[in-house]
Computed example of a mutant assay.
Amino acid sequence: MSNDVDRLTDQQKQQRRGRLQAAAIMLIVILPMIIAYSVYYTGVGIPKGTVNKGQLIDPPQQIDDLPLQTPDGEAWRVSEQAKRWRWIIPGYASCNEQCQKNLYLTRQVHIRLAEKSGRVERLYLLLDDHIDAATLEFIHTEHPHVPIVKAPADAVKELFAQTNLPPDAIAAGHYFLMDQEGFVMMSYTPLDQGKDLLDDIKRMLKYSYEE
């Protein structure tokens, strides 16, 4: 009887240790993300005089709520992609001058991330049903690592209408930062400088997990 009690006690101890180990592993996974959001939304942990340069989108919007497709018409979901931070550069069938400037600026910032660049990706968000041959050639030549994902312009406008962004944000040349879980959380304007983007993304990479 005593042996049975001892064995039961040992089993309970092992189960307790297993639960504690599982909880510790989960904490390691989710804690960096919790810290990242706490830093940005409360300011706790940010040195005095240091603030985000982009405009926080309130509330953040999940991009998978859009009917996203590849240019070939296949469904595209960020939840099925590699976990990365992403700059979203909206554009139409023809990428206008501001669109090209946004692509150029985000490319230069991406390059300056050096060894951290693999944790970040840029997306061209196509707001038309097709893309002009000239624009396609431009992206493939000047920005060869930028995937093209399309979504109806009305759906994108409706998504951002639920936030604090101005109604003409896209028309005014805004582009966006999306977190690793697919939430579009920050907006930039043509007035923002490369250093602004670099400071923000470095801070987010510092406080977020890496797979």
Rank of each mutant, 00 (worst) to 15 (best):
A155V: 12
P90S: 02
A75I: 15
T70D: 06
S79L: 11
A24M: 10
M1H: 07
K101F: 15
E181D: 11
E115N: 06
H130T: 15
Q81S: 11
V44G: 00
V156K: 00
T141M: 10
D10E: 12
P152C: 05
M185I: 13
I34S: 00
Y104D: 07
D132V: 11
Q21I: 13
M26W: 09
I34K: 01
A133R: 10
Q12L: 14
A151S: 07
A114G: 00
I63Y: 06
V156H: 02
G43E: 04
A172T: 08
S2C: 06
K116M: 14
I57Q: 00
H174C: 07
Q61S: 03
P144A: 08
Y188M: 09
P144L: 09
P47V: 09
I139Q: 00
D129E: 15
C95N: 04
P166F: 08
H130G: 05
K48R: 13
G182A: 04
I34N: 01
N102P: 07
Y40Q: 02
T135K: 03
S38K: 05
R77I: 10
Q62I: 12
D168S: 09
I139H: 02
P71K: 08
T50M: 15
A93V: 07
W85M: 07
H110Y: 11
A24N: 04
E210M: 15
L136A: 00
K195L: 14
Q15Y: 14
K101H: 14
E121W: 11
P47M: 09
H143I: 11
V39R: 05
M178A: 03
L136N: 01
A169L: 08
G73E: 08
Y175M: 12
L165C: 09
M26L: 14
R84L: 15
S187M: 11
Q14F: 13
S94Y: 14
F160G: 02
K116P: 01
R203F: 13
I46P: 03
Q11K: 13
K206T: 08
V149Q: 04
Q55A: 09
G54Y: 07
A23T: 06
L113F: 13
P190Q: 05
V5F: 12
Q81W: 13
G45R: 06
D4A: 07
L103K: 02
E137F: 14
G194R: 06
I89L: 15
A36I: 04
G54T: 03
V39I: 14
G73M: 10
E142F: 09
G118Y: 13
D199H: 12
H143M: 11
S187A: 15
P152A: 02
P144K: 11
G91H: 09
K202Q: 13
